[in-house]
Design a protein around this nucleic acid. Structure first.
Lengths: 339, 339
DNA sequence: CGCCGGAAGTGTTACGTATAACGTCGCCCG
DNA sequence: CGGGCGACGTTATACGTAACACTTCCGGCG
């Protein structure tokens, strides 16, 4: 055994194998073809195994000048969607020998003046969701290579971006509802200032503007079931004509709306059609199953990571929005003719 | 500007401020009281700011011999529950100057023979959920300090553990249903081999064993809405007497069961009472709202991190299970008297 | 024989930081 | 008037790794 409780170093392995530390580094680093004999290499490998040697990451990172680790910054609420983003990003990263460290941007976690205080790993780059807005300023502080997921494509941050074609998703939803005959819309919008959400309202409005006799009213709610329920209840019990279609900014909002609608004694889709956006598990958990727009979170993560790796490599990331797809289920139907 | 594109080091700051590198380290490390004058310190600070100096984490970690970073290993599906665990763990960690890196144990992410290939940060310790079973063997390979979240308390891994009092939760559910008059149970169990889930069936069985004339049948399903739906449909359409209460291993399973029950034309809770376990957002998203057991995920994370910090500190973690609480909502009622 | 070249390694250095050990003043006190 | 001490720094070193430059050995070839 070694002296105390300290982990064995490459020099310990070298001593055990009767070679120099440099030889150990060569063998374990797989750089030994033509430099070390097979027998010696095997001796080194068994010595390393016997000692339970694990290279010291900190030392390696210092020596190499990079860590082959990138940070994925997601909103505080680690949702199903971002789990998919992570999965896709991690897959691509692994294929290129990179690791991914997850950083859910904090919401009352300690001092947190510096997000890298929590994610204190040494990093090569950052892949950040535009929804983690609170962490963005601190990220800019470090001059790490940065790729934004679904940020303003006009590039206010000067960073490369990868975008979901949300605008097209809203177009598909709107066309679907218009095709069913709906003309009077209620838009349940997310209560957070984000380009990602701003585009929904804008696209909905411009799409409807091209069709005569349409009407849309927008209400805002926090992205929570309770918040959406309250806002929907308030909007539906107010005065004025009732909408026949409720367009929600995401599936969670739609879920809250479901509860409000049911409490009011209305039926989906008979009295009111409802649409979501995301296609979370929630969409098929509720009854009736929700017509929504599927966002391919894994592909999103993959493309984001590919872009970041390109930046790290000095290349220019390929452009192009990621397509999305309307999924028609049971929450939309033609409007009942008014009595 | 500096020479090329390399980040400034503490030596660059020292040159700019006209002091030695050691002085920079002292000032920026807040160890300078009585060692460096206030004016010099200020000069160093402004120089660091002007150069945009960020300490090299890899070098610091190497020098210090530790990283003050721990790994949190959670199941691949990054759920709401584990988001809470992370939040609690990160809060405690931050209070002690530690960072937390999240590692969702992979599910087909690249080679992944070594989970630390993906989470390649240098680590001081590991906090692991027992549900991330696939990663556990690899974790044992490293001799890092380890604390298990909700593992077998008999300590098969020789690591400290922190446990939720799931057994008590099952007791509360069972007593609630027995009190309502239910005697015939169906147990919808999770299809994964895990101590955490095994305890549910065991506790349910032992509890019912003390009451005469009870009956329970257990069926298994993967933790997904579809899987639960299929298993429930199969069980309810089979021959034999029908249960009056359906006890689900978690809220997601209950959600699938809801769909199956509704498709069969039965009503909750009139024809069948249903209970869950977790108290996710899902529990109040579905209709009727689900009677379930609330697990305090944040407290779980806090206690786990406290235990890990204790281990890192050479202390013995405090013992004691974390209490859970039955939340009675609208999915449970007395059984209808048989016609 | 003399020399070249490849195989098989070794010696040494640098990465950037934190800190222990070591100066150097000037001033106060005995 | 000397010595000691506090204030203010500096010099030197080590952390563990990877890689460059160098040595030694030998076989072959002209």
């Amino acid at each position: 055994m070694a002296r105390g409780s300290t982990r064995p170093t490459s020099r310990d392995v070298a001593r055990a194998a009767g070679v120099s530390q440099a030889a150990v580094s060569l063998v374990l680093g797989d750089k030994w073809r033509g430099r070390v004999s097979e027998t010696t290499a095997e001796r080194v490998r068994t010595a390393a195994r016997d000692l339970g040697y694990r290279p010291n990451l900190a030392a390696r990172n210092l020596r190499l000048g990079h860590t082959r680790t990138v940070l994925l910054v997601v909103p505080a609420l680690t949702t199903e969607f971002f789990a998919g983003v992570y999965t896709g990003a991690a897959r691509i990263a692994a294929e290129h020998g990179f690791g991914v460290v997850l950083y859910p941007s904090p919401e009352g976690i300690g001092p947190a003046r510096d997000p890298f205080h929590s994610a204190r790993a040494a990093l090569d780059g950052v892949l950040a969701s535009s929804m983690a807005a609170d962490a963005l300023t601190a990220i800019r502080g470090d001059q790490l290579p940065l790729v934004m997921l679904d940020s303003d494509p006009h590039g206010s941050l000067g960073a490369a971006t990868v975008n979901l074609d949300i605008a097209d998703g809203v177009r598909q939803v709107t066309d679907h509802l218009l095709g069913l005959g709906h003309r009077h819309f209620l838009h349940l919008a997310a209560d957070i200032p984000s380009w990602t959400f701003a585009v929904r309202a804008h696209e909905l409005a411009t799409r409807l503007a091209s069709v005569p006799d349409t009407r849309v009213r927008t209400i805002h709610a926090p992205i929570s079931i309770e918040g959406a329920q309250q806002a929907t209840t308030a909007a539906l019990t107010g005065p004025g004509p009732h909408p026949t279609a409720l367009v929600c900014d995401d599936d969670k909002l739609a879920t809250g709306a479901y509860k409000a609608i049911r409490r009011l004694g209305l039926r989906i889709p008979d009295d009111l059609s409802v649409t979501g956006l995301d296609d979370l598990a929630l969409a098929t958990a509720i009854d009736p199953e929700l017509t929504t727009v599927r966002l391919d979170a894994e592909l999103f993560g993959e493309r984001g990571m590919q872009a970041l790796l390109a930046v790290l490599d000095g290349r220019t990331p390929t452009q192009g929005d990621i397509p999305v797809q309307l999924v028609v289920r049971d929450s939309t139907a033609p409007p009942r003719s008014r009595p």
